[in-house]
Design a protein around this nucleic acid. Sequence first.
DNA 1: ACATCGATCTAC
DNA 2: TAGATCGATGTG
Length: 204
Amino acid sequence: MKLKRKFYGRPTLDVTRDLLGKNLVHYIDGKRLVGKIVEAEAYIGTVDKAAHSYNNKKTRRNEVMFGPPGHAYVYLIYGMYNCINAVTQDEGEGTATLIRAVEPVENIEIMAHNRYNKPIEELKKRQIFNLTSGPGKLCMAMGITNKNSNGMDLCGDTLWIEKAEENEAFEIVETTRVNIDYAEEAVHFPWRFYIKDNPFVSQK
DNA sequence: ACATCGATCTAC
DNA sequence: TAGATCGATGTG
């Protein structure tokens, strides 16, 4: 069942925690690419020096962050990778959740092709666990780019998040975020959440 | 117009 | 641990 806009229009930390165990779905070329969200981080612009939206700064890149909740903020990073966020809270607040890792659920063989250009049978075990275990990796595996997905309505029919049919119980780990060394005091905010012991959680 | 850099990943 | 790679951003 597809998450509704009301789900996203809540405090960012609640949304971030609650996204764990949900399925990210990209309907592309007539196929559902699906991954279970196992790691996510909150970015809360007003008080967060790690956020693109810090200090209420709107730019052409991050304007989607300031739009209504339930939309995808997808940006290009390091010239070659994409990262996907879900916009949260209320319009104008500049808050979002970065999806950092998923576990492949449907059409993993397409993800293998998107990542390694090889049939899945030829992948080594460590390559399987490397398919979607990071924000850039999962976007590559699921065919999500800044060009095709930035600003996409997550309540539409192309890119969305849905409740899984069933979920094993899991424990949530709450810790500090990754690769934001420049963010001064925000470095210490415990705004990274992941499913304990899940092998698709990103390293470090 | 131009220099800088990044919410990353891979290969060495 | 260094290098890839390029659009967005800030500065002049």
